[in-house]
Design a binder for these strands. Structure first.
Length: 404
DNA sequence: TATTGACCTCTA
DNA sequence: AGAGGTCAAT
């Protein structure tokens, strides 16, 4: 590409393999900050994503990773509190950062290939999710991931982010302070302090739960503190223990996670998928459940008083099994694509519960999923394409009518 | 073993 | 009301 941002290294990477905008803000990690960059003079006929629109930053323990991306390149750099002494040292750090990136984004996994596999296996995916490209599963730190998703229960993504951020500011190590990018829209030149995620031992004290309550964690405050305490009590090196779960079979790893306070089936599955390498685990939340009911021919569930569908362990299992057999070995990854697509559509159209409750009393496991109708496509669609614009307009936000 | 409520707080 | 649930008591 034309120019490399000052101070950045570049890595060739098609945006279809990784979309930072989609991945970093879709509720996998809650710690990335995204900083809008000043738009340069826009040339005519310039393709989308010709230039980076944002810089993304994440504090690790010893450095702050800064990322940008355009159509076919990932730009990266790391900031440190001190100035590097030598060329050698600087080169070494660059190498470490690149290594971290490859691991964190799991760049060895060919996402484009996966998309085509899913599309081939699943009509619904092909029709609805294929246009949300570049969405992959991050390989996160297990402790951070665990604490973050303990915070996620009965909560909004937005609020989860605030909670995790305040947790780091309060208990995390200061990684580095640095000012906003020179080419950002930010007018202030003041340095921003970036804090890494706290280690388990920093969260064990009784005072932590009290403080977290004050910070608005609600009933999750005790979960966080007790989980940290439990991990430190039971394990010499809690973080290594959690990382070690990667080597266990799924069921065993899940059993370990379920011992932790505030970790139930759904949160455990999130951790398994997002930090313990269990790529075929599909966390079933309310959104995924709705999607499964509507598009994947699950039998009408027990009850629905007032249209509500209860989430029981049995249903959880059924949904999970169905989606795994639909998507295969990387089912958890596919789920993440659909979940993100789902979030976008809800943001645009609001949650429209299916009037058409699953009608089929019995749907063979092997049956082809119902072909999405046009309105289904809108339901999932991000931005209405020109083709569909008119009918989208005629199908405005469906105000949920209470079904009695 | 399966079903219910309660649970903190914020936002739409 | 409901949010990417979990826990504890029937």
């Amino acid at each position: 590409m034309a120019n490399i941002p000052k101070g950045f290294k570049s890595l060739p990477l098609p945006i279809a393999q990784l979309s930072l905008a989609a991945v970093l803000k879709c509720g996998q990690s809650f710690r990335w900050s995204s900083i809008p960059l000043a738009a340069g003079v826009k040339q005519e006929e310039e393709p989308e994503n010709a230039y980076p629109s944002h810089e993304y930053r994440l504090a690790l323990r010893d450095r702050v990773v800064c990322l940008r991306q355009d159509k076919d390149t990932l730009f990266y750099r790391a900031a440190f509190p001190d100035v590097p002494l030598s060329e050698d040292q600087s080169a070494k750090r660059d190498k470490e950062t690149l290594e971290w990136l490859r691991d964190y984004f799991q760049l060895d996994v060919d996402l484009v290939k996966l998309y085509s596999d899913w599309a081939e296996r699943d009509v619904v995916f092909k029709e609805t999710a294929l246009r949300f490209s570049g969405i992959r599963i991050l390989r996160q730190d297990p402790f951070e991931n665990t604490i973050s998703f303990i915070c996620s229960s009965n909560n909004h993504i937005n609020r989860i982010g605030k909670m995790v951020q305040s947790l780091c500011t309060e208990y995390g190590p200061l990684a580095c302070s640095l000012p906003p990018p020179e080419d950002s829209e930010e007018t202030s030149r003041d340095a921003i302090a970036y804090y890494g995620f706290p280690t388990p031992d920093k969260l064990t004290d009784e005072s932590v739960s009290t403080r977290l309550r004050e910070l608005g964690f609600g009933y999750r405050a005790e979960y966080v503190q007790r989980t940290a305490q439990m991990l430190c009590d039971e394990h010499e090196d809690p973080e290594s223990y959690l990382v070690g779960l990667r080597k266990l079979p799924v069921e065993e790893a899940r059993a370990e996670l379920l011992k932790l306070c505030g970790v139930g089936p759904k949160v455990a599955d999130c951790i398994l998928l997002m930090s313990l390498d269990k790529r075929n685990v599909v966390p079933v939340d309310t959104h995924v459940h709705q999607i499964a009911l509507k598009y994947y021919g699950l039998r009408g569930t027990p009850q629905g008083k007032g249209g509500k569908v209860p989430m029981t362990p049995k249903i959880y299992e059924a949904v999970c099994t169905k989606l795994v057999e639909t998507w295969g070995d990387y089912a958890g990854w596919a789920h993440s694509v659909l979940f993100t697509a789902d979030l976008r559509s809800f943001a645009n159209y609001g949650l429209a519960s299916p009037d058409s409750t699953p009608s089929k009393p019995e749907t063979p496991a092997t049956s082809v999923p119902p072909t999405p109708t046009e309105s289904d496509a809108d339901y999932f669609g991000e931005t209405p394409t020109k083709k569909r614009r008119s009918r989208t307009a005629s199908a405005p936000r469906l105000k949920r009518v209470k079904t009695e």
